[in-house]
Design a protein around this nucleic acid. Structure first.
Lengths: 204, 204
DNA sequence: CTTTTTCATTGACCTCGGTTAAGAAAAGAT
DNA sequence: ATCTTTTCTTAACCGAGGTCAATGAAAAAG
């Protein structure tokens, strides 16, 4: 168990250079906690009182339909999670739970306000974090409906190759909106096509 | 051609009560323009210099793939359009064009800042508008991948029945991510099922 | 090391949507 | 009205993904 607060400092350093003062404040202000695998951070119907920042590990957001888990999003290292429930002060439609053992920093509205008052130069960074997140998802979701499950999987491999390795396949399937059996077939198909291409090299 | 500025006042009145002063300012500050059907508001590759508010009519956001129009979103009365290009100051990935003759109010960053400086109480409203918009789309897109084309269409009829009546079907198909022929079949199927249900009434 | 449980693969069968091609219907233009 | 263009429907064929059931492989539990 070494320097856990440094992860938080590193996170902010992505966006701006921090002074020593600021580093100390961040280390003191914020709460970092460990969560075991399968720990539930937020349940459907609950009111989210905090937002999260994943420093280490992997968190899934999902809802239940006839007892089936429908995974909507994965969050990994340095992904902030601002639940809609937290933003709108309404009961959550989603669950949040840990796919792996996690190291997570939680933030309350008050703490954030305090921090921003002390360091106004953080304001644009905070806004940027929120924006860039929603924008990133936007473009991914926008054309999801135009992609076949197979193309979705290939796109996922391109954009987030790490996920495929660290997350069980049935969860990947749920995230892609297909059945585990189908994902299995898709993988087989892709694998077969690659073999074919290699054995009959093109003349270009 | 009657009271066009009132549409803008009405829009803001949804969120807060306006004083006479404020009404006058809004009427003066902002630019409302008419656009004919098929007018292009923003092209792929362009930098969006303004954001829009649709007061009357219907605007589609889409991109081209092999010359095919892939419709991502429809905007109708009182829908604000803040292009990603406008927010991030980057070339647009999308086109915006009028599906119908439109009445649209355009806003520049400077004008907005001016307005907010004069009337700080508008700040939370502006933020709320942005939030509620992204949240609404979020939940719609989140489970899009879990819905069959048929279910998508039925959901669209529930949530935006107006669209189906005012927009050509092949555009609806594009929006749902399917072929026009498929939408035709789906409509037929749904229609047939309704007939069946009516002719064999349940005993409840 | 076994036993049990969880997870991944495979096969058979079926439905739905994509594709192509043709034609009907509706909307505009002259 | 007639002619043209746009939009919508229908049919036939095919392939991908859903579903159910069985088997294999891997992890967790004992």
């Amino acid at each position: 168990m070494m320097s856990t607060e440094n992860l938080l400092v590193e996170y902010f350093s992505q966006y701006i250079a921090l002074s020593e003062d600021e580093i100390q404040i961040i280390k003191n202000e914020d709460i970092i906690r460990e969560y075991p695998k399968n720990e539930v951070l937020l349940k459907e119907g609950q009111l989210a009182k905090v937002c999260f920042l994943v420093l280490k590990g992997c968190v899934k957001r999902y809802y239940l339909e006839d007892g089936e888990e429908k995974i909507v999003e994965f969050y990994t290292e340095n992904d902030p999670i601002a639940p809609v429930s937290y933003i709108n002060k309404e009961p959550s439609k989603y669950y949040l739970s840990c796919v792996e053992p996690c190291l997570i920093s939680t933030g309350t509205e008050e703490k954030t306000q305090e921090l921003l008052q002390k360091f106004p130069r953080f304001v644009p960074i905070f806004m940027k974090i929120g924006d860039s997140l929603s924008v990133k998802k936007q473009s991914f979701l926008d054309d999801l409906k135009n992609l076949s499950p197979e193309m979705r999987y290939e796109k996922l491999i391109e954009t987030r190759p790490d996920l495929v390795n660290r997350v069980p396949q049935y969860m990947i399937a749920s995230y892609l909106g297909i059945q585990p059996e189908s994902l299995s077939r898709i993988r087989k198909r892709i694998w077969a096509n690659q073999k074919k291409e290699n054995s009959s090299p093109s003349s270009t």
